[in-house]
Write a protein that binds this DNA or RNA. Structure first.
Lengths: 138, 138
DNA sequence: CTCGTGCTTGACGCTTACGTAAACGTAAAG
DNA sequence: CTTTACGTTTACGTAAGCGTCAAGCACGAG
């Protein structure tokens, strides 16, 4: 296996914050809530690729409107150890649950996009009416 | 036009609450925030079809993770009066903005669903491994 | 008249997800 | 040595989105 030359990159808290456009406070807060567990070098936090991935997942979860508690459950599913059968079945159950939620959200989005398209069409129509009137009165 | 026989249905706060599975407090809160403006008969709130539609839109917005302030802007777009050109242009701009957001969310959902599918596959694989081992040791 | 039912308005409380100092440590640069 | 940059913890503040009483009106049934 050729993983001898991967640099095992790490990041400072400020680097991660800049990359994902969040504040240091936010990142520390996620750690408080158990979502991130950076290494400590002395007192300083050192972030590994795993933390980076998790942060990305957290932010995506946030965009989707999940609470941090929900996100915690979801993110922990990603690096769950195989474990025993009960755990796996529970995990599959959670997955089904999340999928149902996401599909509902997707439907909501489709509907909203359609609604927006209608409002937009109305706007354009109104604009045309207005401009035609202006042209007629000039 | 044959709108002579539509009963112009109305609802009480409790009816709306039951229908959409929210509390009375929630509905009143939305009114406080200017999202709903029911008629008053004496002191009692009377909800018209328009309010019903708005409540549905609000709840959909909530499922999508928008804040009430954002939802207010969106919902108000629906029954905006034609108005002047500046207003219309602003509205179109807002629509573009919301659409961009929603499309980002849709991408997030697609990605998450794919990720979940992968985790699920891993789960099933692990379960099979486990069960094969059990079968072998029996 | 009284009771229950449904409505009303405050008003305080709580959780979430951070913002915002305050006060301090460390290490390199001028 | 002092400044500057970057990090740390502790702790109070806040906006959002309600929950949860408390206290009171209105109205039909008994």
């Amino acid at each position: 296996m050729h993983n001898s030359q991967v640099p095992a990159e790490t990041w400072s808290i400020a680097e991660l914050a800049a990359e994902y456009d969040v504040t240091l406070r936010t990142i520390r807060f996620y750690e408080d809530r158990g979502l991130l567990t950076p290494e400590r070098r002395g007192t300083t936090r050192v972030y590994h690729p795993r933390d980076r991935v998790r942060l990305a997942l957290i932010l995506r979860g946030k965009r989707l409107g999940f609470s941090l508690d929900e996100i915690a459950k979801i993110v922990d599913m990603y690096d769950a150890e195989p474990g025993e059968e009960g755990q796996l079945v529970y995990l599959l159950d959670q997955i089904t649950h999340r999928r149902t939620e996401l599909e509902q959200r997707r439907r909501d989005i489709e509907e909203t996009l359609q609604d927006l398209a209608e409002v937009e069409a109305r706007c354009h129509a109104d604009l045309n009416t207005l401009r035609n009137r202006q042209a007629a009165s000039s």
